[in-house]
Amino acid sequence: MIDLAKYGYDAVNLFFWVIFPYISITIFFIGNAYRFITDSFSWTSKSSEILEKKTLRPASLLFHYGIIFAFFGHIIGIVIPKSWTEEMGISEHTYHLIALSAGSIAGIMVVIGLILFIYRRLTNPRLSAITTTMDWITLLLLLVITSLGLINTIFVQYDYRDTVAPWFRGLWIFTPDYTLMADVPFLLKLHIFLVFVLTAIFPFTRLVHLLSIPFSYIFRKPVIYRQRCP
């Protein structure tokens, strides 16, 4: 006899940790490619610096530096297997201290930066007028994701390298083991799920500018606006 409760539980986990991630990743690649081919002029961050600079400067610095640190922290914690860091001489205790301190600092930087982004758009009428619904969704979603990540880092302190990390690596070689996510704390599951939601809507936001790396600026000749007199 089929255990319907267990079957239903497995079906839910299969959807959230196998089917939905692949749907969001597919939308990410196809959506970005389609937008770049059909509407390349919208491939921009739509800078609002000309409308307000005072709050933008600290917000941008905190957000971008924080997100870079957080990104590389996730690479070390999720992409690199636990056995590799141990072979490099990084003990579990040392890794935990580094992840807690560096992760907390990066998370706080991103959260403050996002709050400042939202504040300047709420308090500046000109910015509010040009802020789209998708801009608000993106900012709020980023704030929730980062806040959850910060809560998980400081308060939950779950060892995700034995469960989440191998599951995530399995996604990219098409062997995801969704059973590894069964005992992961709810707040961490919500954090991961919302990351894939952001992945799915990424092609339809101004975040697409993250994929534009201006390598040509490194090699181009200086632009001369006015030639000096001999």
Rank of each mutant, 00 (worst) to 15 (best):
G149T: 04
N152W: 07
G149S: 00
T163Q: 05
I130F: 00
T132M: 05
A129N: 15
T132A: 04
F155T: 02
M134S: 01
T146K: 09
T153A: 06
I154P: 09
N152D: 13
R126A: 11
T138C: 03
T146Y: 12
P166K: 01
T131A: 07
I154D: 06
T138Y: 11
T133H: 10
T153K: 11
L141G: 13
W136I: 02
T153Y: 02
S147G: 09
V164G: 02
N152M: 06
D162S: 15
T146S: 15
Y160P: 00
L127C: 02
T133N: 10
I137D: 03
A165Y: 10
L143E: 13
D159Y: 12
Y160L: 09
A165T: 04
V164K: 02
P166H: 05
T138K: 11
T133Q: 07
T163N: 13
Q157E: 14
F155K: 07
Q157M: 08
G149C: 04
D162L: 08
T163A: 06
R161Q: 15
A165H: 04
L143G: 08
S128K: 13
Y158P: 12
S147N: 12
L139A: 10
L150N: 12
L139K: 09
I151N: 11
I137W: 11
A129G: 05
T138H: 08
T153E: 14
T132V: 00
D162T: 15
F155N: 12
Y160K: 10
P166I: 07
A165M: 09
I154L: 13
V164Y: 09
W136H: 05
I154Q: 05
A165P: 11
I154N: 05
Y158Q: 04
L127Q: 06
